[in-house]
Design a protein around this nucleic acid. Structure first.
Lengths: 232, 232
DNA sequence: ACCTGAACACCGTTCAAGT
DNA sequence: ACCTGAACACCGTTCAAGT
């Protein structure tokens, strides 16, 4: 809302010449900028999780006073939004739109998306509370083009898109929750050992799942079969 | 870990006789208990969201000192865990396991699950960070039995289960994010009006979606077709 | 067994002021 | 245009103590 730089890139970034005194600033560009704040926020989130990010800690990491941050950023929520979207940037090379092998394109796009989030587990717990940023929208756009080229009718496109999207979201969240509750100080995963209260899922070993990547891609296969019935 | 009541029900709950002085305690049972704390936490979360729950506010709501809470719960994380699981309790009547109409059983179970979460939107943003509680496991157990009765082979059961589960998780999260970012003070949903940067999804009206219930059940239909191919 | 107030070590953000 | 320190109104939790 206020008159702040926002998308406008700072013009006076210069990489060399100013040696930051050690312990004062970490490294890199000494000029405070939105980009630098976001990059530091991602580092802190990677290292300490959602609850480990504080404005004071962030200020320390970029080597400024706390309140300097507020010139570049609206508030802490804003930092979360920016960090989330920055992590979801699509870094692939191929152009979307080529018609051959739509299925490969869809699978590749969704697996990259999932891998990106798993690399930054905090992003998963942030996503449900934040709006869709530009990088997410771009990924949806690519997915949409691949499905179109697969012959999905315009009337069915949104259903197919949301269904795939939902699947990836859910799979990523589930995966991350399991990893987390195993590793960190969270409450133990209950009923990993038999208790008799959930006979069917105990028999099937649902909670002893360990091939998450395989489960993801096999489920995705079945899902795609439902969306675009194979005609052999 | 410490020697605290936990699952043990307090024996001296009595409903009548003690009129709480108005403004001192809200209403209901004046004895502090784990159940009462959780119930108040759910009310506060419903009213003020995840960030609106504080231990001091919770103590006020149950009419006790802050530190009294810590006899019954370990810490704030514990309160979150308990509130989440309490909201996901399955309150349906029918027994699982009857063989006829597995598809109806699956759909009904998943829609109830989704509706429960949407009734308490904070539960969705909590879920990715918490372990699976007993009520979630019970829902998985029911789903698992329905799929077995549908003829899903034991070897494919986990894939089918996780796929459906992921779909519901993702659909619920997506739905809640959209509702949220429309209503509250969150950043506006970007690109709801055409910008030209995402031509395909703008043409399809992906972000102008408003029939979420319909999208959910139609997508679920397609998904079930993929999991259990119809044999007419 | 259950509850308490005081105190500690933090938070995010407003404000008035500096350059 | 950009940065700052001091101050405000909060947090969750430890501790030693009460009944």
């Amino acid at each position: 809302m206020a008159a702040k730089p926002g998308g406008a890139r700072s013009k006076r970034i210069q990489k060399a010449g100013l040696q930051p005194r050690p312990g004062e600033e970490r490294r890199g560009d000494p000029t405070l900028s939105r980009e630098r704040i976001v990059a530091s926020a991602v580092e802190l989130l990677d290292a300490h999780g959602v609850n480990g990010l504080t404005m004071r800690g962030l200020a320390d990491a970029v080597g400024s006073g706390v309140m300097s941050l507020y010139w570049h950023v609206d508030n802490k929520e804003d930092v979360f939004d920016l960090a989330l979207d920055s992590v979801l940037e699509y870094r692939g090379t191929s152009e979307p739109g080529e018609a051959q092998d739509w299925r490969g394109a869809v699978v590749q796009g969704l697996e990259d998306w999932r891998a990106n989030m798993l690399r930054h587990p905090w992003s998963i717990s942030l996503l449900p509370r934040r709006a869709l940023g530009p990088n997410i929208l771009y990924r949806l756009e690519r997915l949409s083009q691949a499905l179109s080229s697969a012959g999905v009718a315009a009337a069915d496109l949104n259903i197919a898109l949301w269904t795939l999207w939902n699947y990836v979201m859910g799979a990523t969240i589930t995966r991350a929750s399991f990893v987390r509750s195993g590793g960190e100080r969270t409450a133990e995963q209950p009923a990993t050992q038999p208790t008799g209260r959930y006979p069917t899922i105990e028999r099937s070993g649902l909670l002893r799942e360990n091939d998450w990547d395989g489960t993801f891609s096999r489920g995705l296969d079945l899902l795609l079969n439902g969306l675009v019935p194979p005609r052999p």
